[in-house]
């Protein structure tokens, strides 16, 4: 057993483990709403949108997290406004912004950054390079997300269940919607150091999507998402260490595999949903 856990004796692996566990908490708090409210594409888009911000942050002398938060927050606000106009517009705008952000980021990176590996880090993360600053950022993000979740969870549930009738229940629908998108943007920024701009879905979407067939309530969905996210993060980290692979993509692949297994088992037990 001690040999199995031996990789985690190294300080950088302990930091990385702490990071994935923190992100599992953020994923549990928000992932349930992301999946139930069908915001998975938005979460992916918010992550990708940070890419050009991250590229220009270094040369501009701006902290990358601040730059990413600004871009991701602006993305969330823009999408919320568009979403109130028409849902199809929100979907189309997400795709448009996602492609534009990726393309602009690559163009900027080709001039601004000389190392291709730096672009890889921005896109896919550098979990093994996590330090105390990144951990502090993630811990702060988790606390913030927990507070926002506590404040708006009832409104999120009412809105998710009954989009048209929620406001008649006396819950602050518009504020809650914006708070959810901004909370996702914060979680996205916290995730980028670990899994990069392209793989935030691996911690914010896939664990909750995997947990969905297992859960009969929003609370149980969060609990299942928590352990699934934690196991995927820790296992992905261990596998990446053993095989000398980048941890972010390994976590994403493990997440995809687990999602497939759980979904197939659920279909086998309960039938394919109509």
């Amino acid at each position: 057993m001690s040999e199995v856990l031996d990789p985690f004796s190294a300080r950088f692996m302990q930091y990385a483990l702490a990071e994935v566990l923190l992100l599992a908490v953020a994923g549990a708090l928000l992932g349930a709403q992301i999946v139930l409210r069908r915001l998975s594409f938005f979460a992916h888009g918010a992550g990708t949108a940070t890419f050009p911000g991250l590229v220009v942050a270094g040369p501009a002398g701006v902290p990358p997290q601040l730059s990413a938060l600004a871009v991701s927050g602006a993305f969330a606000v823009a999408l919320e406004r568009l979403g109130r106009a028409a849902r199809t517009t929100q979907d189309a705008a997400t795709a448009l912004l996602l492609v534009a952000a990726l393309a602009i980021g690559i163009i900027l990176a080709s001039d601004v950054l000389v190392s291709g590996s730096s672009v890889d880090q921005l896109l896919f993360g550098s979990l093994l390079g996590i330090g105390t600053d990144e951990l502090a950022l993630s811990a702060g993000a988790v606390v913030l997300v927990a507070l926002v979740t506590a404040a708006f969870d009832r409104a999120w549930v009412a809105r998710g269940f009954d989009p048209e009738g929620a406001s008649a229940l006396g819950v602050p629908v518009a504020v809650a919607d914006l708070a959810l998108l901004l909370a996702v943007a914060v979680a996205v920024v916290a995730s980028i150091d670990a899994v990069g701009a392209l793989l935030v879905g691996a911690v914010l979407v896939i664990p909750a999507a995997t947990a969905r067939p297992l859960a009969g309530s929003v609370g149980s969905l969060r609990l299942h998402t928590l352990w699934i996210g934690g196991v995927e993060g820790a296992a992905g980290l261990w596998v990446a260490y053993q095989l000398d692979l980048p941890p972010g993509p390994v976590i994403a692949v493990l997440g995809g595999a687990m999602f497939t297994v759980v979904t197939v088992v659920a279909w086998a037990r309960h039938g394919v949903p109509a």
Partner: peptide, 15 residues
């Protein structure tokens, strides 16, 4: 307000 049931999410995990 009591909406039409088809306007509520049947797949939402609530009792």
């Amino acid at each position: 307000y009591v909406p039409q049931t088809e306007r509520s999410r049947l797949d939402f995990p609530v009792s």
